[in-house]
Amino acid sequence: MEHGNEVLRIEHLHKEFEGNVIINDISLTVHKGEVIVVIGPSGCGKSTLLRCINALEDIQGGQILLDGVPVDRTAKNISRMREKIGMVFQSYDLFPHKTILQNVTLAPIKVQKRKKEDAEKEAVELLDRVGLADRKDDYPRQLSGGQKQRVAIVRALCMHPDILLLDEITAALDPEMVHEVLEVVLSLARSGSTMLIVTHEMAFARAVANRILFLDDGRIVEESADPKKFFACPETERAGAFLKTFDYE
């Protein structure tokens, strides 16, 4: 990867919860168009890492830069910064009191002050791309889990973020719905979106990643720019042991 097109840079990130170190000196640079997949055992700090990037958590050390500008929870520009960082969570987080179309256009209209017609036009196009344009007037509770997650992705995309953070977005889904959501993410990756993805779907990780980060105990234990090789024969023992737990899948 050439330099100069870096989107996100994390320097020596340190995060504690009540004295427990959760993120231990993590540094990471994400370039435009890169898809980085973060894997690691439950509780190792993957969600916390993404939440820190989106400034949903305060941090105790290090810094996070988006396009060279610090992401600081306490700074005045924080909502401007968050606008450029799209996030989709594991649990369905659509707004239950808004229709699908309203869910997707609320922030473009209220935050970016875009014209309602323009925002809706784009929203319908994007919804169409994930196969849900005909559900635009439904409420979230009328949709399946897989459909809701596709809407959540569209909602984030409508803000034209510089980077998309996906936190185990298929973990709460019935198995038959996982595929339809991952397909959407794969097509985003192909069209050049910059993404930081946390997932437990190893086959998907191998297919989508430019780079794999293996996290354990709040540290990057292994980093690989060759996902095929990483999954075939990881270099560290801990990554190996972790991957073994998926052997029965």
């Binding site: 968050r82 922030a107 970016q112 803000m159």
Partner: peptide, 12 residues
């Protein structure tokens, strides 16, 4: 998570 997703969309 409702507030968090609103914030993550850039809302104040």
């Amino acid at each position: 998570i409702q507030e968090e997703s609103a914030l993550s969309l850039g809302m104040t």
